[in-house]
């Protein structure tokens, strides 16, 4: 751990590395755009923690699963990756609903560790099923022209694909936030998150609500997975790292605070890209470092946890 730190300090002190405002702003913007995608990764985790008090260790593997399913749809139909969402999202919803009904509902509320260990097993199963079905090779979703197009902005070039994915991420956050805070179903969700026992007393069917929740969570995961697959090559082993980025976004933002998760994602994205500027291999390392430092400074997260 000492060396990367030394390296950072050295790079910062080296006069040859001139401070370039343009590079700085470009890195910042790209970091924010990447972070918006991480925020979308984190959203599902934030929802399952906030509402069901359940951490899903297989969350990252679901992101990768979604990307593979999308690639299967793209290959077997004429649809592009974005159009594949039409088929992918209902499929993801059903997968989530089934998992909650068949597995997760048996362990949620028992103790906090049972869901963790169960989904840990599930994570291993998904990773190896993907490896069995699609081999260990990396693949990516064909983004076509989108991957190459960029917007020129005062000498900087910003990719169109990252812009689109950030816009989609914001739209999803806006929609889910509205659903939870402005709808009758959302009231039931908040009630269960507040006090599951009393929610049952007023007639809320918590287990059924959880099944729909997990379905919805996997829909957000499905959207994230297509945007991710168009941008980055993935392999069956990519899941755990997705989980960690999602987790960092959630904890940084403050638990049970959806927009907090969004900001948390942005911070991780920006840290990673500035880290990668210092040393290409150290991008994620700096994301983790910022996470740890933030944890020491503000253990309760950057924002007060309004319940979501």
């Amino acid at each position: 751990m000492a060396r990367p730190l030394m390296l950072t300090i050295m790079r910062l002190l080296t006069p040859t590395l001139e401070f370039d405002m343009l590079v700085f702003i470009e890195t910042l913007i790209n970091g924010l755009l990447l972070g918006a995608l991480y925020a979308l990764f984190g959203m599902g985790l934030s929802l399952s923690l906030g509402v069901m008090r359940m951490i899903n260790i297989a969350h990252g593997d679901f992101i990768v699963l979604g990307a593979y399913l999308s690639s299967v749809i793209v290959m077997s139909t004429d649809l592009g990756p974005l159009a594949s969402l039409l088929l992918l999202l209902p499929l993801m919803f059903v997968i989530g609903w089934l998992l909650q009904v068949v597995l997760f509902n048996r362990v949620v509320g028992r103790d906090p560790l049972s869901p963790l260990l169960l989904t840990f097993g599930l994570s291993i199963v998904i990773q190896n099923l993907l490896q069995e079905g699609f081999s260990a090779d990396t693949r990516s979703l064909p983004a076509g022209d989108l991957a190459l197009q960029g917007v020129e902005l005062g000498g900087m070039s910003i990719g169109v694909l990252p812009l689109i994915s950030a816009a989609i991420s914001i739209a999803v956050f806006w929609f889910i936030n509205r659903l939870i805070h402005r709808s009758p179903v959302g009231a039931a969700v908040r009630a269960v998150a507040d006090d599951q026992e009393t929610a049952r007393l007023v007639g809320v069917n918590d287990k059924r609500l959880f099944a729909y929740m997990t379905g919805l969570i996997l829909v957000t995961v499905g959207i994230a997975s297509v945007l991710y697959g168009m941008r980055t090559p993935f392999s069956p082993a990519s899941g755990p790292e997705r989980l960690i980025f999602s987790f960092e976004a959630v904890v940084l933002g403050g638990l049970g605070n959806l927009w907090g998760t969004f900001i948390g994602g942005l911070i991780i994205g920006v840290s990673q890209l500035f880290g990668a500027r210092i040393d290409t291999g150290l991008g994620p390392f700096f994301g983790h470092l910022v996470f740890l430092l933030a944890l020491i400074a503000r253990p309760q997260g950057l924002f007060k946890g309004g319940k979501s």
């Binding site: 951490i55 560790l113 960690i244 983790h288």
Partner: peptide, 30 residues
Amino acid sequence: VPMFRLRGAYFAVGTWVLAEMARIAVLNSD
């Protein structure tokens, strides 16, 4: 110090982040 600021499931994943950091640090240490 940082890890025990997290509780329960958060601690669990926090230790995982720690392990990832250590791995990347070693990977980049000649």
